[in-house]
Write a protein that binds this DNA or RNA. Structure first.
Lengths: 209, 209, 209, 209
DNA sequence: CATGAATGAGTATTCATTCAT
DNA sequence: AATGAATGAATACTCATTCAT
């Protein structure tokens, strides 16, 4: 029965375990990661893992929570800045930050995402979705001309899931036929053109005087 | 040492093994699949697996090849029909076929893709990319007005990877916030609007003579 | 190094540990009992167990001593009363008390005996044997007609071990073919008939003068 | 999923595992027995245990079945002989055989019973009870004078459980206050006197006309 | 060709015991 | 005295792979 970390020392240990989890996935992949690996990297005994985590699965959950948390932490403060950019620049900004996050610490999160983005895992991306929605809402408040887009939910879903996956895949693919900048530029214009065209169509529909 | 199947009987066995692989992944998931499962389902002894495949990994490779092959086989004949459709209808047609393929045989391929589409596996999607390119080329020959799109490679990459992943994820997600039709419609209009806007911009650039 | 409890507080703790031992065996069985369980129930830290007991085994020993002690404490005062009963009533009295002891505190001792009465444990039943002997001696002093029974030691041994085991087993067996009263009655008459018959035989042997 | 042994070789292995189980319990006690011990003694790999037994528990079950089976096999043919003996001789005969069975192969079964007779284990002694009942019935057919004993079920229960346990305990106790012969003699006369006295009482009740 | 029994290195998990605070 | 975090040896069980028949 995993204990709730009460002492400061314990919190340090819990943190070390999660860190070690990322490092192990980085080194051995997710299915190649063993509890012994994690314990060794964390510099603790195997038994200690089970002081704080019911089982290996719970360590992965904690890792995922950390990942999502860092994603959200990265996204939240961007809202204010992004609202004043045009769509292409805004997406460049967001994906640039994401890129930096994934590359951080020798691609720790990229390696993790590569294994975890397997659709099997019931990855709760909800907090990320919510953080992005918040950004979009702020954006729309500053750019009301985009306010009546159709297919809003679907396009968000596609952008979040497809965009994330494509980016992780691209960053992991040494033989990609396109450059990273081309990918980001593509995603940005994909959104931009969609929005522009929608706006145009809506205007045309409303104008018919 | 796995032999190359020379007799007809051997080909039948190899086929049975690959089939059994899909069925096992369907039943137990990829990480829950064992060589014994596969052998049992295929109706042969475990030892026999190794007559035709060097190891388990090779069976997965064969399964992937089969999957890609079926994807390509599905795509190729669509070329002719699609060329005469508008973009939205064309994408609906393609994704509809893909949907049917993934649902086939009690979601055999969907279950497989769910496990396999994690970025870890060096899934060679090249043949699929090539088949799609062929469709697009045929499309452009019939619709020369779209011929000078910018970011062609990037958009293909995004569409193939992001689209595929989003679709598999959506089909596997019981709590998706959008319907399948909304997803397909979203993907179709994403492409359509991009193309229309590009065309408009290009026309504008070329006109002002 | 376990200290001998000198302070009052320490005695309280030792007692709490032994109590906790019984409760844990009751809840989790003997092989399911861990030092952590015991410490938690006793409301102390694991480390503290080792202040008073060299190891887990010693806790079990203390529990056994307590059990035997309570058995003896129960038996001793019965001597006076029993001496005035006939054999059947006497045995009913003794087994009735034993029954009550085993049922006490939600079958605390019954659960313990169930695990402990396996022959592996070198359970020292000597004090119990001695207490019973004392009862019998008192009984014989008041009932001199039974004084020259043959096989006295063997019958005591059989009664103490076999009787105890059978009773614990019966109380633990939900599907026993006989009722508890039948069991007690059986044990009582087993002894009674033996004694009566012996007496008869002895009288016959001594009489023919 | 343990396979059903089909080849002759497999049956030999299954047998070797059960044998090894007894030997390991003999050497290390039941709780000291590990799957590795058993495999080593059986001269096979650990994995092979699990080819034929779902888990360690199932091995113990097989051992118990073997033990009960040997007990029954020992008892069954005694019926004919015993019917012609007086009660004391009959019980001596039965316990003598039991003694021999427990001593066999360096006390293999004795050591097993010592651990297994723990009341915790839901040891199904039913077949043994049935075999003994058969003996008793045959005995009564030849000795109709004993036919109307009261407390028949209870006395059988006491004799089987208490007698068995007492015997195993005695054989395992180096400091027993009585000899084995005294024990057997005690059990025999316990039954004999009970029966004699019952007969006497019944006769007295029926006679007084 | 085919088999399936045998294998054993590898894995997650437990728990009595220690010891720094 | 008391604690509880840390430990790591030990354990049951799995499964890809081999090889004698």
């Amino acid at each position: 029965m995993p204990r709730v970390p009460q002492q400061e020392r314990a919190k340090v240990t819990v943190n070390a375990i999660v860190e070690a989890g990322f490092i192990s996935v980085q080194r051995h992949g997710m299915s190649g990661t063993t509890t012994t690996h994690i314990a060794d990297i964390a510099g603790i005994g195997v038994g200690s893992l089970y002081e704080y985590f019911k089982n290996k699965e719970m360590i992965y959950e904690a890792m995922h929570a950390r990942f999502v948390d860092d994603l959200v932490t990265m996204l939240q403060p961007m809202s204010a800045v992004i609202a004043h950019l045009d769509i292409v620049a805004a997406i460049h900004a967001i994906l640039g930050e994401l890129h930096e996050l994934l590359q951080r610490q020798d691609q720790r999160y990229l390696r993790y995402a590569r294994s975890a983005l397997n659709v099997d895992l019931k990855i709760a991306m909800d907090p990320v979705t919510r953080a992005l929605s918040e950004i979009i809402i702020q954006y729309l408040l500053h750019n009301p001309q985009y306010a009546q887009l159709r297919r809003f939910a679907a396009m968000s879903y596609i952008f979040i899931h497809g965009g994330m996956f494509t980016m992780v895949r691209h960053l992991s693919d040494p033989n990609s036929p396109i450059s990273f900048d081309e990918l980001v530029d593509g995603l940005a214009h994909m959104v931009n053109h969609y929005v522009l065209m929608e706006q145009q169509l809506l205007t045309a529909n409303n104008a018919p005087a």
